[in-house]
């Protein structure tokens, strides 16, 4: 093994460190600056209690068996006379032990009623392990931090919810176009076709728009509404906008009533 003499390689290394010295560091000063987490981040699991039907699929599929669910059955009196009494599952306890949780996401994926969601919230450390078992009240609170899912990449298949809703909207639009002039609230047909709000709105909007198209009203401020909103404490901008909208609505209704009165 021969001895080494300092050569160019050492100087290049010195150059790299000097260059880094002069650049801004990449550290994020954590408690002062919160990290910018993407929407799919698996921070904590949130529960939408209203959707849960206590099917127990999440508790069964969890690899660690860290979901504790208690429930009881209740009978609901029938809506009409003579019908059968229905039984309903009522959720008593839904707890996730985050000390055991592997953050694998199988429970969120497997829930058929979309009751479990991922949230990027990660600042929930505690001083004792027992406090890491969170009950449904806390899980419900974390629902407020759940972000909407991101759009998918170009070339991806559209998700089933969106494609179903679009198909329903298209059908409803065709149906309302076919049953055109008597402004048929075929929006009802759209609503029946899956209840996707996109579908319903898409169907209702074309039908409603056709009616309003031929009435043009100059926007002015409805003074009464404006004064009332200012008195309530709304800001001037908001009050003006709502007052204008109210005026336009009243004018259009008046004109429509006139037209109907005429026809």
């Amino acid at each position: 093994m021969t001895a080494t003499l300092p050569q160019v390689g050492l100087l290049k290394g010195l150059g790299v460190t000097l260059k880094t010295l002069l650049k801004k560091p990449t550290t994020q000063q954590y408690p002062h600056v919160k990290p910018d987490l993407p929407p799919r981040t698996r921070g904590v699991i949130a529960l939408m209690e209203e959707n849960c039907t206590v099917c127990m699929l999440c508790a069964r599929e969890c690899p660690d068996w860290c979901i504790y669910i208690d429930s009881h059955k209740e009978t609901v009196p029938p809506k009409e006379e003579g019908a059968r009494a229905r039984t309903r599952n009522v959720l008593d306890r839904f707890a996730i032990d985050f000390a055991l949780c592997m953050y694998c996401g199988i429970c969120v994926e497997v829930c058929p009623f979309d009751a479990l969601f991922w949230s990027p919230e990660f600042e929930y450390s505690t001083y004792s392990i027992r406090e890491l078992t969170h009950e449904k009240e806390q899980l419900r609170k974390w629902m407020d931090t759940v972000p909407p899912p991101p759009e998918l990449e170009v070339g991806a298949e559209t998700p089933k919810e969106i494609s179903d809703g679009l198909a329903a909207a298209r059908k409803a639009a065709e149906a309302s176009a076919a049953a055109a002039a008597p402004a048929a609230p075929a929006a009802a047909g759209g609503a029946a076709a899956g209840g996707a709000p996109a579908g319903g709105a898409a169907a209702a909007a074309p039908a409603a728009k056709k009616q309003e198209e031929d009435i043009h009203v100059e926007a002015q401020i409805d003074q009464e509404v404006y004064d009332q909103l200012i008195a309530e404490g709304k800001s001037e901008r908001v009050a003006r906008a709502r007052a204008k909208a109210a005026y336009v609505r009243k004018e259009k209704a008046r004109i429509r009533a006139e037209r109907e009165g005429q026809s």
Binding site: T17, L18, T20, L21, K23, P25, T26, T27, Q29
Partner: peptide, 13 residues
């Protein structure tokens, strides 16, 4: 501080 900044971090803050 110098070691920190050469390593793209801040050092003690």
């Amino acid at each position: 501080k110098v070691l920190g900044h050469m390593q793209a971090r801040y050092g003690p803050m």
